[in-house]
Amino acid sequence: MKILVCISNVPDTTTKITFTDNNTQFNNNGVQFILNPYDEIALARAIELTDGGNGTVTVINVGEASTEPTIRKALAIGATDAVRVNAKAHDAWYVAAQVAAYVKANPFDLILTGRESIDYNGSKVASMLGELLDLPSVSIIKKLDIDGDNVTVEREIEGGKEVLTTPLPIVAGAAEGVAEPKIPNMRGIMSARTKPLTVIEPVGVKTLSEIISYETPAPRGQVKLVAADDTAKLVDLLHDEARVI
């Protein structure tokens, strides 16, 4: 089985997010970049499914050379090989179009992404890829099992879950529950250096959106403290002042 895992290079989850140039650019000064946590889950499941030589796991990233440490991390975790599309990830549509072009030339049995990247949270690449490749897509899965040529996934719905089956190939976005992220071991780290990382040039794509500025959430006022034995006062405040109950 051939599995493709789409990976993003994102600011570490502990990053305090700030902007520069009059709030038009993300300030990456001093920011540590990591493999997107949901992509780690997708990668871990792909490695489980191909365990013991039962297939290959290719990771693909659309990014400039600065994303290579993250790609090497994915190789250290256990991906077989990697592809970097040498371009800035302009938006989800641009990324999906690049990956779709690669997959049309190099077919896969299963394509995984994370449920969303933790920077732009679009949750879009999996479904766009599905549309571009005319394949079923499930944007947020909690479970994925393969039985022969069929795949069964569980997806989250408001207040419940839905179980779907489809023939392979499909595109799915992995969320918590699909697998436990894997930590690379020393052998993985050593072998990652020599695993193939192919750089390809992007295909021409017309972009459809542009981020023009950023805002940070408005700061809240000073917290109003209520004494621990005066919970009735808290209820009154929530009712009379905040008007939320």
Binding site: S209, S213, E215, T216
Partner: peptide
Amino acid sequence: KTAFSGKAFAVVELTS
């Protein structure tokens, strides 16, 4: 729209 998982907002222009 929301961005950075709730740490910020992004103003996106749809050019299509």
